[in-house]
Write a protein that binds this DNA or RNA. Structure first.
Lengths: 120, 120, 120, 120
DNA sequence: GTGGTCTAGACCACT
DNA sequence: GTGGTCTAGACCACC
């Protein structure tokens, strides 16, 4: 995994895990890698991974069993919400930034299609 | 102008100026406010504005005449590029993040329309 | 390190680092001194060093790992370019100024040799 | 005349006049344009031209006759010196900067020849 | 500990 | 008055 420089690594790792959950690579109840394993795999400081898990727990996307590891939440609703909410956030932010460029909703869609065809 | 807390002020100011150029509020060759004026207007330290100008100059969006002030580039191409490139960047990033959520182009557009109608 | 008075300190520091890279004192991937260390070593304000790093990053000569430090680029090409380009710039500028004095290439070389022998 | 941004305009104008003297475009005793004329011709603030003349006088390259204008010095020696000294300055500076790049005198000459042939 | 941002205030050179 | 550089000192987020 390559990291972008202008967003905190721990956020990037969180996003990766979230998207794995959403796309189904991680199922509810699945065990995540251990802090140490993940740290080694990602060539990252264990503290950083630690923080990822802590934050995921705060958002109740994961939970921790002492001595057993960290697991994906078993609550279907939480996971469902995750997808909706994440998408909404991104969209809000995106639309705002496009409007600052004087682009209306139809302009945006036109550009999206162009982008998809590689003609942007 | 109100500042968001999670992005550097100087970036927000840069973005504002860029978008003013794109939307035509600022025309090529126009003089920007002086460092000190703008600092007062935005209730920000002059150094911060100074930094904005320096960065804009690095990106050749503006140029500076010693003792005269800072001006919007007179090169049409630069300005044209600005618009295209800025939009493209945002779109690329946005689409990538939506695809990570398993959303295809048509899903995205559907959601955009829903968002616009306030039904998302 | 002694600073010349008529060029910004931060430029002089940048040039020093660049030349260290070119001469091989700094190898690709090497960690630079931390902002604070270097500031102390050079008897300069940390902000000034900070600025140096930022500019070097803009020119993609260095990159930064959050919380880890600043490093020399690992891209061979960038480093290779650095050397060629820096020399070329200086030469272009120099030859231009000599031609303004009505000196042709052979005159220049003659003078260079004389200078080297201390007989200029 | 186009001005470079990173050197004071008045220096650039001075250099132009000096080089005109050296290359013979301006002969000893020749009258220079008036402050106002030159300012208009160069699209520059009259104060700036004023300063140019003052400095040239300080270096005794020009002299001023009240109410008559500014003239190139009539002292052959001064003019002769001008050329030698200017060349020496540039060379000293140039060689120093090339040595910082680990280039010896023969490397420099090689590169100069390459540059002249357009193969650098 | 590391870099990144910001404020405050000073001084300088240029126009 | 304009931009450019620098110092001093503070606070923050990240690793």
């Amino acid at each position: 995994m390559d990291f972008i420089n202008d967003t905190p690594i721990y956020i990037q790792i969180m996003d990766k895990i979230k998207s794995d959950i959403i796309t189904g690579k991680l199922q509810k109840g699945d065990k995540l890698m251990s802090t140490r394993e993940l740290a080694v795999a990602l060539k990252v400081n264990p503290n950083t991974v630690q923080r990822v898990f802590k934050e995921l727990e705060n958002e109740s996307i994961c939970f921790t069993k002492r001595g057993m590891g960290t697991f994906v939440s078993e609550d279907d609703q939480t996971i469902e919400q995750l997808k909706t909410q994440l998408a909404k956030e991104k969209i809000t932010q995106f639309v705002a930034s496009m409007k600052a460029l004087n682009l209306g909703i139809e302009d945006i869609i036109k550009k999206l299609r162009a982008y998809e065809e590689g003609t942007l």
